[in-house]
Design a protein around this nucleic acid. Structure first.
Lengths: 332, 332
DNA sequence: CTGTTAGCGCATTCAG
DNA sequence: CTGAATGCGCTAACAG
């Protein structure tokens, strides 16, 4: 079934030109006469010719491949992130290869080796906690990389993301401004994500005589949120609000409440984190924090492409994320 | 920053062996003495050597790249599909490149050209409706491709998926068995997806004296589902059930009902399509059809890899999808 | 078990 | 503006 594809030489033969000229046309060089260009383009179409990327890479030493490793794709924040990267890269002729790490440092490292073996020239990593061997591998090979979804003012590796600590702290303060003093913080496993750790710390930093927190850790899923809510309901403290460090878990809290004939926000105010698509459509609409995942993806790969092309140094980038006030938080 | 990477020749020099032997070790050939292998592996590690994929591809003419074009990634069915493909490919040393078509045939064609230019050896396409030029391009270049998410007993292109027609028909029959006779069918734009067309036809095929249907088309989103529900409520017929051709739209129907103090399933039974993660966690849990997206992805790329390696002909594959009965459908 | 050699298809000098 | 020659790093015969 696989037909022999035309090579640059076939086009040269067809047009009576040299392969150098064909190459010039295919690469958009300006020093080619319009008629020659036309002739070449025509012959290319006719012969069904497309430059062989491997051969091209071999001489230019540029693959135009950027790699991303994400914890999971079955979470729309990452899906948006990926979509942002893919579409931005495509515009400039780059392509994205990615792998899923399942939040496992070892899987991440293995994936990186594979991606490197595919010719990835730069990496987008999620979060700032990684296997030291991975960092060393990338560094040793001189492959540029950035950390995303986090923000750190200093450190060797540029970060492109938002300040999880400040956002969670701000969320607690927001709930406090709405009159809440006993707040449950529902979150996923810290082991799996340093973003969770930062968010948790940020929340904790807001504790005071007037703001009392309790933390509930469960699996990062709707089911996990439900479990957390059940623990919360059994807790000695009567919480008036819950900050869920992920919208997904907030949905679980909703479910647990409706199962117990409890009403959000009358019995409990709920605040999420992520602003997933459906968060505005559930009932009541969820107050949450809008994370600019798509923009972050665009920004990360843009910096990387600029670096690869002109050596433009990569700057850390800070994205603000706003609280979206909706009906799930009630003023006391 | 980019350091010069060691080449096969450096390793040869380091070990005092020939490049052929290095190549053998790197490719896992068996005819190499264990000590030699050790020595090579050691030197490779020391010199930070990894075979250059472009050079390898240039001689083997195999890129081990498979391409997928999907309508959107911000929909967990596709996310699962992608995840299934990626992880299956990775196990056999293949990689996935993908592009997002936004359900636009032209964008799909452009993406395909780009992916082809990257060295994709086979394609996974979604649905069965595509720009004829795209099909011709792929065919002319001898690139194998499959259609997914649909099922067709015959036709030139192998399909790997489920029978949307039969599933939607089965869904209507299920609702009828539960005592429903006036059923609203809520769906996304047919223009954008032949899967929608098949599902709609399947539903229509179940119409009879006892089963009366009305169709409501809106954007394929939670918001679209909500709009459809409002139209439905204004309709002269009093529907007792709604079949949403996507869970996402079912969520919109839920929202519209709760906004009107109507209760699912007492005022309206709702059935979805997709079995998205959260469908079991919303209230009431959604009766829906579980689509085996992940398995479908695994199967599609497995067939393609087998074809690429041994020329194994690609067989169409049929996946069954089961109705998951939950509380959103009430027996009348 | 190991070495030698010949391209793979292209971009890129350097001439003209 | 165009052509001829070179080599990128590797695998695949072919020898031994």
């Amino acid at each position: 079934m696989t037909k022999k594809l035309g090579s640059i030489r076939d086009v040269a033969k067809e047009t009576g030109l040299s392969i150098a000229t064909i190459s010039r046309v295919m690469n958009g060089a300006t020093n080619v006469s319009p008629e020659t260009r036309e002739k070449v383009l025509l012959a290319s179409k006719k012969l069904n010719y497309l430059p062989n990327p491997a051969a091209r890479t071999l001489t230019t030493k540029k693959t135009k491949i950027i790699a991303a490793i994400i914890p999971t794709i079955e979470h729309s924040v990452y899906a948006k992130f990926i979509a942002g990267m893919e579409q931005t890269l495509a515009k400039r002729g780059y392509s994205l290869v990615f792998a899923i790490s399942n939040s496992d440092e070892e899987q991440e490292k293995d994936a990186a080796e594979k991606l490197l073996g595919m010719g990835a020239e730069a990496f987008v990593l999620s979060g700032g906690r990684h296997d030291p061997e991975l960092i060393e591998l990338l560094t040793r090979r001189g492959v540029q990389f950035v950390f995303t979804s986090i923000w750190a003012p200093d450190g060797d590796v540029p970060t492109i993301g938002y300040d999880n600590f400040a956002l969670a702290r701000g969320a607690i303060h927001h709930l406090h401004r709405m009159g809440h003093q006993d707040i449950a913080v529902v979150h996923g496993p810290e082991v799996l994500s340093d973003r969770t750790t930062w968010r948790k710390r940020g929340a904790k930093s807001a504790e005071s005589a007037e703001i009392r927190l309790a933390f509930f850790e469960e699996e990062l899923s709707v089911g996990g949120g439900k479990l957390a809510a059940y623990s919360m309901l059994k807790h000695k403290t009567k919480f008036t609000a819950a900050l869920c460090l992920s919208d997904v878990m907030a949905l679980g809290v909703y479910t647990a409440h409706s199962e117990n004939n409890l009403v959000v926000p009358d019995d409990l105010s709920v605040m999420g984190f992520d602003n997933l698509d459906w968060s505005v459509h559930i009932s009541p609409p969820l107050t949450t924090i809008d994370l600019p995942a798509r923009k972050m993806g665009e920004s990360a790969v843009t910096s990387l492409m600029d670096y690869l092309e002109d050596g433009t140094p990569i700057e850390r980038k800070f994205f603000d994320a706003k609280i979206i006030e909706r009906a799930s938080v009630k003023k006391l």
